[in-house]
Amino acid sequence: MSANTFGHSRRGLKKTHKATIAGVAALGAAALTLSLVPGNGSTETEPQALSTGTQKVAWSYDANSAQAKALAAGLNEQQTALGLKAQQEAKAKANLAAQAKAAAEAKAAKAKAASQAKAAAKAKAAAKVKAAAKVKAQAAAKKRAAEKAAANRSVTRTPVFANNLDGWIREALFIMDKHDIPGSYSGIHRNIMRESSGNPRAINNWDINAINGIPSKGLLQVIQPTFERYHVKGTKFDLYDPVANIVAACNYAADRYGSMDNVNSAY
Rank of each mutant, 00 (worst) to 15 (best):
A149V: 01
V135R: 05
A117T: 14
G53T: 02
L50I: 10
A63H: 13
A97Y: 02
A127V: 00
K101M: 02
A137S: 01
L34P: 08
K110W: 04
L50T: 13
A111R: 07
D62G: 10
G74E: 01
A131S: 03
S42C: 13
A81F: 01
P47L: 02
N152Y: 02
G83I: 02
A125P: 06
S60E: 09
T156R: 13
A114L: 04
A100M: 01
K85G: 14
G41M: 06
A140I: 07
S154T: 05
A133M: 08
S51N: 07
A119I: 01
L96D: 12
T43C: 06
R153Q: 10
V155S: 10
A73I: 10
Q88R: 08
A98I: 03
K107W: 08
G41W: 04
A92K: 12
A145R: 13
A70V: 10
T80A: 13
A90E: 04
K112Y: 02
S65T: 01
K128A: 15
Q116D: 15
K134R: 08
L84M: 08
A120L: 06
T156F: 04
L82F: 00
A117G: 10
A140W: 04
E89Y: 03
A120V: 05
G74V: 05
V135G: 09
L36P: 07
Q78N: 09
K93Y: 02
G83A: 14
V57N: 11
